[in-house]
Amino acid sequence: NQASVVANQLIPISTALTLVMMRSEVVTPVGIPAEDIPRLVSMTVNRAVPLGTTLMPDMVKGYA
């Protein structure tokens, strides 16, 4: 089972991601792979991401 990136807090729309905002967790459905966390830092989300939500590729500008 692959770990995915999960929001560690509410991430408001257009917020630049930082390490403290994300954690890795094995979830269903599978989202962005946890090993991509370093790549996600400073990318922005294009929607509000509630606490505990799995980050999907279409939620992060420039990721997909």
Rank of each mutant, 00 (worst) to 15 (best):
R39E: 07
I11M: 03
Y63V: 04
S42P: 00
I13W: 15
A34D: 07
S42M: 15
A7L: 03
N1I: 15
G62H: 10
L19M: 11
R47G: 06
G62A: 11
Y63M: 05
R47A: 11
V6M: 04
T18Q: 09
Q2T: 15
R47C: 07
P29R: 04
E25M: 09
L10W: 12
V20Q: 15
V49N: 01
L51Y: 13
L17M: 07
T15S: 13
T15D: 03
T53R: 08
L19N: 07
S14D: 15
S4G: 04
Q9F: 09
M21H: 10
T28K: 06
D58P: 14
P33M: 08
V45S: 05
V26S: 10
S42F: 07
S24C: 09
S4Q: 01
V20R: 10
M22P: 00
A3K: 07
D58Y: 09
G62C: 11
K61H: 10
P38T: 12
R39L: 10
A3R: 06
L19H: 10
A48I: 13
A3Y: 08
T53K: 08
M21A: 05
S14Q: 14
V6L: 07
S24P: 13
L17W: 02
V60R: 00
A16F: 08
V20I: 13
M22H: 00
N8Y: 03
S42T: 13
S24A: 14
A7F: 03
Q2S: 13
L17N: 02
I32F: 02
P12I: 04
L17S: 00
R23K: 14
L55M: 13
L51K: 13
V26A: 13
N1G: 10
V60T: 01
L17F: 02
V5D: 03
A48T: 15
M22Q: 00
T15Y: 08
S24W: 08
Q2A: 13
V45T: 13
G62V: 04
P38K: 10
Q2P: 15
S24F: 05
A16S: 11
V49H: 02
G52E: 03
E25Q: 10
M59T: 05
V41D: 03
A7Y: 03
G52T: 00
A7E: 01
N1K: 06
